[in-house]
Amino acid sequence: MSNKAQDWPEGVARHVLERTDSTMMEAARLAPQLAGPAWILALEQTAARGRRGRAWQHPKGNFSATLVIRPWQGVEQAALYSFVAALALDEALAQVAGPHARLSIKWPNDVLLNGGKIAGILLESLGAGGQISHLAIGIGVNLREAPDPGALEPGAMAPVSLRGETGTDIPPTDFLPYLARAFAKYQAQFESYGFAPIRTAWLARAARLGETVTARTTLETVEGRFETINESGAMVLATSAGPRAIAAADIFF
């Protein structure tokens, strides 16, 4: 790890909490008072959650943080920050895990290490009247321990931890600067040049690109070859009935 580990992006606030209900709830409470972007890191969470309201386990020593920003444009552009966050996570983990860690990104919002899930991303918009005032980007990383697989839903990807897979043991407060710096880099790229370079970089790290996957939405199950993601971030599958763009789903390999 470089001596730059403690470098911090200019103009970004940092709040480190010993304990809170969840960093996403804390983000909603803090957002109206924030003058600019802010990271909120909690060493312990009592009511953490993941996508679709699912419980998110937070063993001691793991990373749970939320970044609050004012999104660059409207609702559609705001959703693309999940790809910015995934690239930042991939880069930060690569920096601390070393050259032998096999990292990839699973659509729509997970990061994999050696084929197991090490991190997840959750986006929530904050505002009223259909207007987004802030975007909360929640990030959880299994730095020290993998959650109990028995507590996960059937078919869910097996969890892994950074320490378990690589032997690297880094505290959440030390990991945060790596992630904040990487996010600031990709955010600047996104806001200067749009989604195209983010999409290209994401596809270069995509798990199972070109392979057959199963997408389960609330209404149906679709199987097809993972061809690409389109300009709106939807997964494009080549199916027996032709190409299908999937905007939201759980993906199974």
Rank of each mutant, 00 (worst) to 15 (best):
residue 1 M to G: 14
residue 4 K to A: 15
residue 9 P to D: 07
residue 13 A to D: 15
residue 13 A to G: 15
residue 24 M to F: 05
residue 26 E to D: 13
residue 27 A to F: 03
residue 28 A to I: 03
residue 32 P to Q: 09
residue 33 Q to C: 02
residue 38 A to R: 07
residue 39 W to N: 05
residue 39 W to H: 01
residue 43 L to Q: 12
residue 43 L to I: 01
residue 45 Q to T: 03
residue 49 R to P: 01
residue 50 G to N: 06
residue 53 G to W: 06
residue 68 V to T: 12
residue 76 E to V: 12
residue 76 E to W: 08
residue 76 E to N: 08
residue 78 A to M: 08
residue 84 V to A: 04
residue 84 V to W: 03
residue 87 L to V: 08
residue 88 A to D: 06
residue 90 D to Y: 15
residue 95 Q to W: 09
residue 96 V to E: 07
residue 96 V to Y: 09
residue 100 H to V: 07
residue 103 L to F: 09
residue 105 I to M: 05
residue 108 P to F: 00
residue 112 L to Q: 09
residue 117 K to D: 06
residue 119 A to Y: 05
residue 123 L to W: 05
residue 125 S to K: 10
residue 128 A to V: 10
residue 130 G to H: 01
residue 130 G to F: 07
residue 131 Q to C: 04
residue 137 I to Y: 02
residue 137 I to G: 04
residue 138 G to F: 07
residue 140 G to R: 01
residue 144 R to M: 10
residue 147 P to F: 08
residue 149 P to I: 01
residue 152 L to S: 12
residue 154 P to H: 11
residue 154 P to R: 10
residue 156 A to G: 11
residue 157 M to T: 14
residue 158 A to V: 13
residue 161 S to Y: 05
residue 162 L to R: 06
residue 167 G to H: 06
residue 167 G to I: 11
residue 178 Y to H: 15
residue 180 A to E: 02
residue 185 K to I: 00
residue 186 Y to F: 14
residue 187 Q to E: 15
residue 188 A to F: 01
residue 194 G to Q: 06
residue 194 G to W: 04
residue 195 F to A: 03
residue 199 R to A: 06
residue 203 L to S: 07
residue 203 L to I: 13
residue 206 A to Q: 02
residue 207 A to Y: 13
residue 208 R to G: 00
residue 213 V to K: 03
residue 214 T to L: 10
residue 214 T to Y: 02
residue 217 T to V: 08
residue 225 R to V: 15
residue 228 T to G: 03
residue 230 N to W: 07
residue 232 S to D: 11
residue 232 S to V: 14
residue 233 G to H: 04
residue 233 G to W: 08
residue 235 M to R: 00
residue 237 L to P: 05
residue 241 A to Q: 15
residue 247 A to K: 13
residue 248 A to L: 10
residue 251 I to E: 01
residue 252 F to K: 07
